[in-house]
Design a protein around this nucleic acid. Structure first.
Lengths: 135, 135
DNA sequence: TCGTTCGTACGATAGTCATCGTAGTACGGC
DNA sequence: GCCGTACTACGATGACTATCGTACGAACGA
């Protein structure tokens, strides 16, 4: 089986949970990680889809992949291949339908905390290991 | 060191984080556990303080203590000794000040999810191990 | 076809955490 | 003073997870 049939022309597709299977506990857990909260905040700020490499995260590519996958599998983001890149977008529609106001509340809370802690108007910085491997 | 000096007369007091030290990530993580979310929902529903033993949680007392401590240390609840019992109350004031609407949003989301999944109007039931040890 | 870029898969590792059981402390009533 | 109730502390354990590094796969451009 050496990749029998790639099928998809311009996009392999990734497994996403359907709207009804998104669980609040999962979403909260996903958002409770600083790295993932940062990703989500940036996506919300941009209001558009971003490829993984557009985020300047202080972790290696493998770890980055891990976090994006967690976000996708918990239903927080949507991922689509676009050529060699992978576009990430918030599932605002689904989240707002299931849990109206929740995402906005978390984003607002994060912004307030940032302002309060004086992390400047931009996004927060490190929190764990600032070492950067291969990336 | 056999408890050198208990100090407090009628109430040993427990360490709570001051309002300014409550972190969003901590709160989200605390709420992402089903058992703890259940505790918080019950506290919010009652709107008053409850002792630990008033919750009928499907875990042993040790585990219960653990969850209450996590909630206290992350700043979600306030705990005060009252005789042999320990009263637990939501820190709604502090949370609403730091993150307006967040707690309400999470509680509302939990209620909606319950309704959607048909867990009845009451609180959800088990989710992990229904075995009950000493308790 | 070749190389580059972007991301994945896999294995390893260290840390955290939810859970338990047992033993112990604090308070209040008898 | 003694006992029961309420909760804690400690140690153990199994599971999960955030991180890394290396090796690989897929798309694109020259």
């Amino acid at each position: 089986m050496t990749t029998p049939a790639p099928v998809s022309a311009g996009s392999r597709d990734l497994p996403h949970p359907p709207r009804e299977e998104i669980r609040l506990e999962g979403v909260l857990q996903a958002l409770s990680d600083p790295m993932r909260l940062r990703i989500v905040r940036e996506l919300a700020a941009v209001g558009d889809e971003l490829s993984c490499s557009q985020f300047d995260l202080p972790v290696t590519k493998s770890t980055s992949t891990h976090h994006f996958r967690v976000l996708r599998e918990t239903g927080v983001i949507r991922q689509v291949y676009r050529g060699t890149a992978k576009l990430n977008g918030l599932r605002e529609d689904d989240l707002d339908d299931l849990f109206p106001g929740l995402l906005a509340g978390v984003l607002d809370a994060a912004a307030r905390q940032d302002a309060r802690l004086g992390s400047g108007p931009a996004l927060p910085s490190g929190h764990a290991a600032p070492r950067r491997g291969q990336q």
